[in-house]
Amino acid sequence: MERGLRSYVLRRLGFAALMLVGVSMILFAIMRLAPGGPEAVLIGGEFSAEAAAQIRQRLGLDRPLALQYVTWAGAAVRGDLGRSFKTGDPVASLIADRLGPTLQLTGGALLFAVVVAVPLGVLAAVRRGTAWDTLGSAVALFGVSFPSFWLGIMLILLFSDALPWLPPSGLAEYGREGDLLSRARHAVLPTLTLGLIQMAAVMRFTRSSLLEVLRQDYVRTARAKGLADARVVWRHALRNALIPVVTVVGLSLPTLVGGAVLTETVFAWPGIGRLAVGAVFERDYPVIMGVNLIVGAVVIAANLLTDLAYTVIDPRISYQ
């Protein structure tokens, strides 16, 4: 790594650490300002003021807010994210258990989106104004128009009920978690749900970016040299057109995680999104903090990697 790039990365990492501290402080404050508390969920219908007070004391919620934050942050720096208020499990192990399914879902959705959307975008740009272009735009519009929870349920009704081809929910049948085919069949609908939404943006950006590049002089020169159309588009134009697409893909990571929250809930997918939703409804503060810290770190890392990816795609870009 060249020196300029190294100091750039270090600077960014420094900012990232500060950002995480800021995010954790804001989140901690917001959570405690929100009405309600974990005791109502922990006790359920047999709630009593006495039991509630006892729980608050046991969980340390009766201490001053600043002290609670400092205790949490001190432990977090040492790698201890605390224990879930609800089940008493270590937060780190809850997140570790859920990370695999979420990565599988978001990774699969991203891969699906890119693999399908880039060629569709190219086709729409090259065949601008034709039926292909209209079809591509229609697919994109379809993807951005439907919320994931609705799309997910519609896909379940279509592919698990009307056409009983795929299982409606879960990661795999019990006892068949190691069976790749079973896992793949369970993954089809959630991956499609999340991927379709993502695909729309990638497709639209590929199309518009490629159209712009195709108008440039060097493309005309390449064509004038007698290069085949496919070679001009795929080798010369697309590479430059991909820079904004990479930005969109990088910036879409938070959206993917956000989308995964709903998709995971609909498909009973045991990932981080569902963990987060459950924790918010149950006011499981340590889990909310832990999940957000990890997701925040992933998003910051993704943004950094996106910036670094520019240098690979376009050697003219360099960081000082």
Binding site: Q104, G108, L111, W165, L166, L180, A184
Partner: peptide, 30 residues
């Protein structure tokens, strides 16, 4: 990540087989 890619590839490549998901065995209850 490798596992994700393999799985994702399987998902994309998978043809819809028309099989119903394995029903829970009679002597278990889900």
């Amino acid at each position: 990540m490798i596992q994700s890619i393999v799985l994702a590839a399987l998902v994309v490549a998978l043809t819809l087989t028309g099989l119903r998901p394995a029903a829970a065995a009679g002597r278990d209850m889900v």
